[in-house]
Computed example of a mutant assay.
Amino acid sequence: MSLSHPLMHSLDHPDSEPPLDWKTRKRIALGAARGLAYLHDHCDPEIIHRDVKVENVLLDEVFEAVIGDFGLAKLMGKENTHVTTAVCGTIGHIAPEYFSTGKSSEKTDVFGYGIMLLEIITRQRAFDLVRRANNENVLLLEWVKGLLKDKELETMVDSDLQDAHMQDEVAELIQLALPCTRADPANRPKMYEVVRMLEGNGLAERWEERQQEEIDHQDSNHTIHPNIHWVIENLSAITPDV
């Protein structure tokens, strides 16, 4: 397979190129999920990527996806539950438990994958100071949650995907992204479960669980990064790739 360009290039398509249609985006999401599931469940030792994002998904000429850029990847023995390191990665994709403790695991990849799904749906960056200038949340996940709370699905979806007939399918993919980005890693699915859900198995049940969690925590002021203002002021110290 000849890899030609990162997914972000196709999402930000030049005027000379057509936008990615919904069917292609779903196939890319499934291909990336299968790649991560392979790293987690079929490699020995297990490989934790630690920087899952649209820039690190590579596409070939027919838009088949593979995971690329293993510069931050770590090996983890089957007897271990996590790897502890200095925090690295890309703001907006860093799972809260990794950000606060330095502990990364397959569930930190699941978090990054969930954010990547939201990037595919919205064509927005995971962390974007432009949103703050517009009085919106700089973190894509919090921005999406706010729009969902206000029932503004159309506002968050990439304008290239505004056909009415695909709204239900877009909503389903959002429903998958949200369990992947739960604050507690124990409540996130494994990547093989994500693959099954993308293939149509178990999505409704996951979303029901997510809805109940939101009800249980509707009065909580929890955010992904409680010290977000510190993060903004110290971006270069955390990641060179924002």
Rank of each mutant, 00 (worst) to 15 (best):
S2A: 11
L3C: 08
L3G: 14
H5I: 12
S10Y: 05
P19W: 04
L20G: 01
D21K: 04
R27T: 14
A29R: 02
L30P: 02
A32C: 05
A32I: 13
A33G: 08
R34A: 12
Y38E: 08
Y38K: 02
Y38F: 15
H42Y: 15
E46V: 15
I47W: 03
H49A: 02
H49G: 01
H49M: 08
V54D: 07
V54P: 01
V57S: 08
L58Q: 05
L59G: 06
L59D: 11
E61I: 03
V62K: 04
F63E: 05
E64T: 10
E64K: 04
I67A: 11
D69M: 09
L72M: 13
A73K: 00
A73F: 01
K74G: 12
K74R: 07
N80K: 10
N80C: 10
N80F: 15
N80D: 14
T81S: 11
V83H: 05
T85R: 05
C88Q: 15
C88G: 00
A95D: 10
S100C: 08
S104Q: 04
E106V: 15
V110M: 08
G112P: 04
M116Y: 05
L117N: 01
L118V: 00
I121D: 07
I121K: 01
T122A: 11
T122E: 06
T122P: 05
R123K: 11
F127A: 13
F127V: 09
D128A: 09
R131F: 15
A133N: 12
N135G: 10
N135C: 13
E136S: 10
N137S: 13
L140M: 07
L141I: 14
L147F: 05
L148K: 03
K149R: 12
L153V: 15
L153T: 12
M156N: 01
V157E: 10
S159N: 06
Q162T: 05
D163A: 14
A171G: 03
E172H: 02
L173Q: 03
I174Y: 07
D184V: 06
P185N: 05
A186S: 13
N187T: 13
P189E: 13
K190R: 06
K190Q: 12
Y192C: 09
V195M: 04
R196M: 14
M197Y: 07
M197E: 10
N201G: 10
E205N: 11
E209S: 05
E209Y: 12
Q211N: 08
Q211K: 13
E213G: 13
E213V: 14
E214R: 04
D216S: 11
D219Q: 14
S220H: 02
T223G: 03
P226Q: 04
P226A: 08
N227W: 10
W230S: 11
L235F: 01
S236I: 05
T239F: 00
P240Y: 03
